[in-house]
Design a protein around this nucleic acid. Structure first.
Length: 223
DNA sequence: GGGTGATCATAC
DNA sequence: GTATGATCACCC
């Protein structure tokens, strides 16, 4: 495998991303010497990591943007034949303790979503993984209205977490941003705030963007 | 059929 | 366990 150097600037990143449009995942994988899985059941992050690698993102599990020096977060998004998202989009883990004084402006959600490079990839299950094609990338920055919706949902969710009501939160809360389990399984536990203010254990949660929201983002470009 | 809750792989 | 990358799969 040949090493991919991180893009030096935004223009270079966009050039690389644009060159992948129309290319199949098998082409990328072959080029990189990576086997294509039969399905994604045990390789759920495969597509994302393949695209990450090809664009020269710094691999790692740091809670930071993929291209920190460019202020860009990379997200692959599975779409159907109509260009609509097939899945919600994971943003980041939700803090469940020590959240006093945490504001939207300095939250991880806000930071990660400041600028996102969306890379649509055909995701319908009847299409073999290798045959799935990459679409036209979209560099997105939330507009004032999108920012307002995100902030509103985030504040509402964090308020309930702060009140020790994380167990009462479901994916139905929030217009565009939702809170859902994010863990190895339902037995995973992490600390959270109890209703009496003490510490309790609960299933880890993550923030996800609902498909109605990401569909709007894709629509703004493709109509 | 769509969305919610559950789950998978991997690095550290 | 916590973080990354997400999709699976069951229930409504």
């Amino acid at each position: 495998m040949k090493a991919i150097i991180p893009p030096e600037n935004l223009t270079e990143l966009l050039e690389r991303a644009n060159m992948m449009a129309g290319v199949s995942l098998a082409q990328i994988a072959t080029h990189r010497g990576i086997p294509v899985p039969k399905d994604l059941k045990r390789d759920k992050g495969w597509v994302g990591q393949l695209i990450e690698m090809e664009l020269g993102a710094t691999a790692g599990s740091k809670p930071e943007q993929d291209f920190l020096h460019l202020g860009v977060e990379l997200k692959t998004i599975p779409i159907n034949a109509q260009g609509r998202p097939l899945e919600t989009t994971y943003v980041c883990v939700a803090p469940l303790t020590q959240i006093e004084g945490l504001t939207w402006e300095n939250s991880l959600v806000c930071h990660k979503l400041q600028r996102v490079l969306w890379v649509p990839v055909e995701g319908e299950r009847h299409i073999p993984i290798g045959d799935r094609r990459i679409g036209t990338p979209i560099l997105w920055q939330p507009d004032p209205n999108e920012l307002r919706l995100l902030k509103q949902d985030w504040e509402e969710i964090m308020e309930l977490i702060a009140l020790g009501k994380v167990e009462k939160l479901t994916a139905r809360h929030g217009e565009v941003l939702q809170l859902r389990p994010k863990a190895a399984n339902s037995r995973s536990l992490t600390q959270s705030i109890a209703e009496n203010g003490s510490v309790k254990m609960t299933n880890p949660r993550g923030f996800y963007l609902k498909t109605t929201f990401t569909a709007m983002i894709l629509d703004k470009v493709f109509g």
